[in-house]
Each structure stands twice: as structure tokens, then as C-alpha cells.
Design a protein around this nucleic acid. Structure first.
Lengths: 219, 219
DNA sequence: GCGACTTTGTTCCAGCGTTCACAAGCGGTT
DNA sequence: AACCGCTTGTGAACGCTGGAACAAAGTCGC
């Protein structure tokens, strides 16, 4: 078996590819048929040379002197990212954040299908959100098994996130996206990705503060 | 004027410092008084040597042979990150995500005070969330000016995010955290930080897919 | 009081990511 | 058909980040 798309793609590149995919979709909707690396880089907020290097990881796709064909490039990125095949996701914790995620239309168009919503609070169970009914957390394992869900999203309070992580891992989920402000530990073979809103805000504030301080010193 | 904490702290270190701050607070609440770099690193999910290097950026604070004093270290990190002084933030777009952010208790304890909630939908204006009343978006500039808000958070739909970004920038906001799935352009002097939920999910899915594929090839 | 152990702080090194700069290639034009 | 301008793709240098090993320093035990 040959391996036409070999080696590994750097993680930083993967993150940018997802951004390019979004921008390309927007260009396609706008009727554009071709786009140059400079335009695309500008729209994505990155360096043109870096963008070309990112795209080089998935083989030559552009035409010299012209640029990239919008639809073809979009499809190729989607294929590499695996966005063409649907992935089953379960979402645990249907508070405000969980509801926002469940309602987020961007998932479906990118190959993610939410197949289960779970919460422990009785008054949330039974609610319908985005076409799905919130189930009790006790049904978690059964649904994961039945749907072969490979991705779990945790949007619970911090104090139960580890417990949910353990149950998802045991049920066969291989990838977990965690929004709770705790560092999770998962068994080997399970990827955990952390998104901490207050960390983002603190980094932003620090950069602003640093800029201000430097400005004062130099003034 | 001397500058006892000179140079610059790498951005990656700043992000981890925010995590350490959270872990230290949790340790302090648990009654711990001292902690070693190994324990702290384990709780934060990082390498012990890296943690020590991070902490070295803010000057010696530990005691050799013993470890770090929890409360003192927490305060020092908080001071470096600027979490001791309160920062005024405005939040635009009070949908599910915006509501989640407004309700998020973690902000207040980290030095962020939300001073304004804004939305364009009439049925959302007037609602009370987390002690604040949602205002009409037309009041944005007046509130930013009156409160000297330096941070803006955008949780609006994608199609109005750039417009909100422009208004925030013009009103004097220096740092913007954007949750809308678009790449914003802001004038020089304004920092924009992007958090894209679907990008995170796509990176996670790709890593899982790559792992699976590699496993199949090697099998 | 002294030695040994523990833990920090620092230095070195390797790998990765990013940027710049240039050769290669394609389309349009004459 | 040949030339020219434009854009891609790639090679190399630079800076940064992450990890490991080592020296300094402080505490505990005797």
C-alpha cells in the first residue's frame, strides 16, 4: 500500500489549514474561482510564504502565475483534515456554553455531527436543542457505544470534568475537547485538548499591559 | 526609573503562568502551604524543568530543598500577570456563548470586571445577567468611554464581528478577544486574539485520525 | 557543627516553526 | 513561437520553544 500523503503535518499547520478552509468557503460563497497566496494569507491573517509552505504539505495544488483554484483547494484541505466524512460527537454539560456549542451551526458543515447531549440536572434533561433531546448523564456510555462516537466535548463545571473525562475514555472516546478550567488526565491513547477562556483573556491582558508599560518606559 | 523585571516574558510562558495561577489557587484552597515544582508541574500537565524555567522569568521565588510557598507564588504570578488590578471589560453579543461568558465566575477572581453587556436584539436588551443589564449596542461607545474599558470580548455572529471590532477599536479598546469565526483586522495598537471553537475541534479530530491511520499502517 | 539529601535555578542542546529570498513554471502578449 | 510578468514551491537561515543535565543553595539528621 502506497502512502501518497506521508510523513506528518505539523500541528500548527493543521490549525491554520482549518482557518484556510473557512476563508476558502467564504471566498467560494462570494463567487471567487481563483485566489493567490497573498490574498488568502491576508484574509487568514498569516504570512504568504508560510501559507504556501502549509499548502505544500498536501502536495502541489496551485498553478504558477495564476494562484489556487478556490473549490479544488477547499476540497483538498477538507479531505486532508477529514472533514468530508462525518464524525460522531457527544457533548456533556448543557449549560450556557454547552447550549452555544450545540447550536453552533459551524460544526455540521465541517464534518462534525453531534449525536448526543448529556447533563446531570433533571430540569435540563428532556429539553430539545438543535434537533436533539438532552439525555441524562447515565445514558452516556450506552449512546457512545451505540453511535461509535469518537469525540467528546466537556462543557461541565470544573469539579465533575475529570469524572466525565474518565467515563468518556472508558466508553471508547478517543479525543476530548475540554472547556472546564481544570487540567485533565486521560489514559494513553486518548487525546485531550484544553480551551480555557480565562487563560486566553489573561494572555491578552498581559500583552496589552506589557505594551503599555514598554510605551511608558520609552516615552 | 529602574526596571527590576525587565526583558520580556515569552507568550507561551504567559499562557502557562495563567494555568499555574489556577492550580495554585486550587492548592491554596486545599490548605497546602508549599509545593514542589514536580507536584505543580504534574497538576498543570507540564514538564517540571519547563515549569521552573517559566518561574525563573519572574525572579527567584522558591526555596531550594523545600519548594515554593503556595500563597507567595500565587501572589507573585498574579502581580506579574496584572491580575491584582481590576480591568474593565465589555462583552458584545449576548447569545448563548455571551451569556456563558457573562456568567463565568472565573473572570472576577482573576482581575477582570465586566462592566457592560451589549446586544442588538431588542428582546435581549434589558435582561439581567450576572448582576448586569444588557444594553443596546448603540450605548457601546458611551460605556467604553465612561468606564475606560480596555478589553472587549466579541461573541456575536460572524457577519457583524468586524463591525463591532471597528467600533471597539475606535472607542479606545486596546485588546479584543474574538469568538466569532472570522479573522478580524484591527488598527495598529489593538491586539486581537482569536478563539475558534471549530478549529480546535478540527485539530483534535485530525490528530485522532492521524493516530488511527498510523496505527493501521503499522498493524 | 557538619555532612548528605532534596530541590531550585541555570545552562546547554536539539527539534520545530517562521521568515526571507530565489529558482521554476505557467499564462498572456506580441 | 518567443518573451515577459506573475505566482508558486522550496531551500536556507534565524529565532524560539521544550527537554535534559548540572551546579548552587538550603534544610534535615546526626
Amino acid at each position: 500500500m502506497i502512502q501518497p500523503r506521508p510523513r506528518t503535518i505539523p500541528e500548527a499547520t493543521v490549525a491554520r489549514l482549518a482557518v484556510y478552509l473557512r476563508v476558502l468557503t467564504s471566498f467560494a460563497d462570494g463567487g471567487r474561482t481563483t485566489v493567490s497566496s497573498g490574498e488568502l494569507a491576508s484574509a487568514a491573517g498569516v504570512n504568504p510564504a508560510g501559507l504556501r509552505k502549509d499548502l505544500s504539505h498536501l502536495g502541489s495544488c496551485g498553478v504558477r502565475g495564476v494562484g489556487y483554484e478556490v473549490r479544488a483547494l477547499r476540497e483538498r484541505i477538507a479531505r486532508v483534515l477529514g472533514a468530508e466524512q462525518s464524525r460522531a460527537c457527544v457533548l456533556v454539560g448543557i449549560g450556557n456554553l454547552g447550549t452555544a456549542l450545540a447550536d453552533y451551526a459551524g460544526f455540521g458543515s465541517r464534518g462534525f455531527e453531534i449525536v448526543g447531549l448529556f447533563d446531570a440536572a433533571p430540569d435540563r434533561v428532556g429539553r430539545r436543542i438543535g434537533g436533539l433531546t438532552v439525555q441524562d448523564i447515565t445514558d452516556l456510555e450506552a449512546t457512545v457505544t451505540a453511535t461509535q462516537a469518537s469525540i467528546g466535548v466537556i462543557a461541565t463545571p470544573a469539579d465533575v470534568a475529570q469524572q466525565v473525562c474518565d467515563r468518556l475514555s472508558a466508553a471508547g472516546v478517543r479525543s476530548i475537547l475540554n472547556f472546564a478550567p481544570v487540567t485533565l488526565s486521560a489514559p494513553a491513547g486518548v487525546d485531550v485538548r484544553q480551551v480555557d477562556l480565562s487563560v486566553e483573556l489573561q494572555v491578552l491582558a498581559f500583552l496589552g499591559q506589557q505594551r503599555t508599560t514598554v510605551g511608558e518606559v520609552s516615552a
